[in-house]
Amino acid sequence: MSNERKPHILVTGAAGALAQQVINRLRDDYFLVAVDFREQVYLGDDIPSYCIDFNKRVFEDLFRRYDFDGVIHLGRIMSSQETRMRRYNANVLGTQKMLDLSHKYGIERVVILSTYHVYGANAYNPALIDEEAPLKGAGLSMDLIDSVELENLANIYLWRYPDLNITVLRPCNIVGPGVRNSISTLLASRRAPVLAGFSPIMQFIHIDDMADAIVLAYKNNQRGVFNVVPEDWVAYQHALLLCGCTRVPIPSIPPILPRTIARLLNLKSFPPYLMHFFKYPVVIDGRAFRDTFGFKPRRPLKEVFRYYRENKQPV
């Protein structure tokens, strides 16, 4: 067995907590190469790690050098992290480059991390949103356009190049230790804004369960698009109470008002492009992923909320 070549996997977004969890789950059985365009991270002597812009020629050199069998693309950056143009270059053009190289070098397995934000939040959303629902996120905000375009790209390649075996995962809010997204920052804060009169149902998945889901998706080769979500959900304001946050109501009308207040108070965790998600429920249906991959989350909501209750400092 020791003489057999381990399958080679490229993991993007290696500076993120989720990618590092995925890497830890795979490192014994696979030869991994870690890439992030923001910073180089040390993950041990056995894992080559690079800080590379996907749109630069040196990115292709990795494909030549390491002869990858698969790619796990977790390198999508959030709207809060970069300017809009830089984010578009990374999320959309970078993903396109990665998919082109994957096709060129005969890669047989690609897993891409997306987000439930692509569905958009509006008053007319169905009670349970499945994978067939239209992606309305771009219509609500310029800041979600790159997320929707990344998905559209993935779907084009999914059907154009079936040999890539692309699986796209759309998780709900990822939370837990090390997560640095908007919702995690809110749950970890002592005082958290809420839109007066609104408390939409929200879904949360623990980072451990999400890492398990990604590994499961990679190992069980099923092409397609899948929502990833546990079976439980909770109202946003109730989640804040369970996390020990003091709620700070912000007037919700006129629409410009909450955006102005959030900007004045420098509430980076309450960005304007997500304002609708604090108003209208976006409840996604995870049955297809559960049934196809046999996914069973292990971390209940109460464990998530206990973590934030006991760790009340900026995450």
Results as ranks from 00 to 15, higher is better:
149 E>K: 06
112 I>A: 03
136 K>D: 14
126 P>I: 10
122 N>S: 15
162 P>D: 13
147 S>F: 13
86 R>S: 14
87 R>P: 02
116 Y>V: 05
125 N>G: 12
163 D>L: 08
130 D>Y: 08
141 S>F: 12
88 Y>H: 03
108 E>F: 04
107 I>D: 06
119 Y>M: 14
95 T>E: 11
89 N>W: 09
163 D>P: 03
104 K>A: 11
116 Y>F: 11
117 H>W: 00
89 N>L: 07
157 Y>C: 04
88 Y>P: 07
90 A>K: 04
122 N>M: 09
112 I>V: 05
133 A>K: 00
123 A>V: 15
129 I>E: 02
92 V>H: 11
134 P>Y: 13
150 L>W: 01
98 M>V: 13
95 T>Y: 04
123 A>H: 08
124 Y>M: 03
127 A>M: 14
95 T>G: 11
162 P>T: 07
104 K>H: 12
125 N>P: 02
135 L>V: 01
109 R>N: 08
145 I>N: 10
152 N>T: 09
138 A>S: 15
101 L>H: 02
130 D>C: 04
160 R>Q: 13
133 A>D: 05
130 D>N: 11
128 L>D: 12
133 A>W: 06
140 L>Y: 05
103 H>P: 01
102 S>T: 00
117 H>Y: 06
106 G>P: 06
117 H>D: 07
115 T>M: 02
147 S>H: 08
151 E>L: 05
113 L>I: 01
122 N>H: 12
116 Y>M: 02
121 A>W: 09
88 Y>T: 09
97 K>R: 09
86 R>A: 09
98 M>N: 09
99 L>G: 00
105 Y>T: 08
83 T>R: 07
155 N>F: 04
116 Y>N: 02
133 A>I: 08
133 A>H: 04
141 S>Q: 09
149 E>F: 08
138 A>H: 14
111 V>E: 15
88 Y>L: 04
118 V>G: 01
139 G>N: 15
85 M>C: 10
97 K>S: 07
82 E>R: 06
161 Y>E: 05
90 A>R: 03
126 P>C: 14
124 Y>W: 08
163 D>A: 09
108 E>G: 13
115 T>P: 01
115 T>Y: 03
152 N>F: 08
107 I>P: 04
146 D>S: 15
113 L>D: 00
158 L>K: 00
150 L>P: 02
97 K>I: 12
140 L>A: 15
112 I>H: 04
82 E>V: 14
97 K>W: 03
98 M>L: 15
150 L>H: 04
109 R>E: 12
133 A>G: 05
